[in-house]
Design a protein around this nucleic acid. Structure first.
Lengths: 191, 191
DNA sequence: TGATTAATTTACAATATTGACAATAAACGA
DNA sequence: TCGTTTATTGTCAATATTGTAAATTAATCA
């Protein structure tokens, strides 16, 4: 009998707008006014759906954490049976569907990690989880390589990818991105 | 006859405090109140020495640019005659005198690069300049290697270093940092 | 149509931030 | 000591941001 609830939809829209603002202005630079404008709704609705700023930030951290995890699993689950490593490299260093927002959000959260408890553990878990997935793929491609070397290569490959994503807002030239990808591939050789 | 001017000293102190604030709160999150508190002076002094916020930000960008360039030349000029590459790796991935602020400032400026014209060119120039220095060191150590491979290795090594520095606020475990350094060293092998 | 529940808007108070200028204090030389 | 210049502080207005509650509108079903 009641009016249908838009809580889930609106909550997602607001948190997505929050992410875009954090990517541009940082966590403290993301005012409620900016977020509501970015989401295309009135500011009081932020409060209606997510509560005050403190509660919003808490849910934001949770949302981003889950989103990063989801994107990671989605990325690796989409790899084909064969040629997985090449597809992975292509996905990480391809310039097709790039969303520089995610890396910027990541960096903004790192910067705020000392003030908002919970961020640090979440991001560290995300990083190590990502590295472990990459290491698994490397080990799968090179079964004879020892696990330690695979872990090192995975760590380096992940670092190069993260750095590339973080610098994308500067719109670096293509040959710079190519060098990043080639450096990542070098780590996979001689295993 | 006049009272001696503290303009240079205070200007530096303020800009250094500005950097620490940007590292924590981002460019838009760095309020004049926070900066003045971090600098240990009254807020009106910010205006006295650096003008209004817009003028402060302009000088901040210039200051950071020059500082990054200065730190780069200082780093490479301090390398000894022999064993340069090992010393360089030690300086980049050592955990002695780490200042996570610089990397955080860098990331905050990347995030703000689309709103503040001039940031993009400055940071890109800094990155390529850093990579070229690293490439020069690699080439010096391995004279028989071709320049393209040196550039790729330098690009990867720089990326891993930048990423490591960016993540330092999360206080990652030592073995994670060790893997980063080992991955960087892998790029130098087989040239 | 009316009741009910949620969405949305309006409105106002409290606080934070910035801009701007006047007033005061301090250091230096004549 | 006096005059000059600068550092430092005090103060207020304008704007921005957030918190909060009430009022209004809209959708669904009986």
């Amino acid at each position: 009998m009641p009016r249908p609830s838009l809580k889930d939809t609106r909550t997602d829209e607001i948190l997505e707008a929050f992410m875009r603002c954090v990517a541009r202005y940082g966590l403290d630079g993301s005012t409620l006014e900016r977020i509501s404008e970015e989401a295309g709704i009135g500011r009081p609705l932020l409060r209606h759906y997510l509560g005050n700023r403190e509660q919003m930030v808490a849910q934001f951290i949770d949302y981003v954490t889950r989103k990063f995890d989801g994107m990671t699993t989605e990325l690796f689950d989409a790899l084909p049976e064969t040629n997985r490593m090449d597809v992975l490299i292509g996905a990480l260093f391809g310039r097709e569907d790039y969303q520089p927002d995610n890396a910027a959000v990541f960096q903004a959260m790192v910067a705020a990690s000392d003030r908002y408890p919970g961020i640090r553990a979440s991001l560290l878990k995300f990083i190590t989880g990502f590295e472990e997935r990459v290491a698994g793929e490397i080990q799968r491609q090179k079964p004879q390589a020892d696990a330690g070397s695979c872990a090192i290569a995975a760590s380096g490959l992940t670092a190069i990818y993260f750095n590339t994503a973080a610098i994308m807002p500067l719109k670096p030239e293509n040959h710079w991105q190519n060098r990043q990808r080639q450096a990542a591939q070098r780590l996979l050789e001689n295993l």
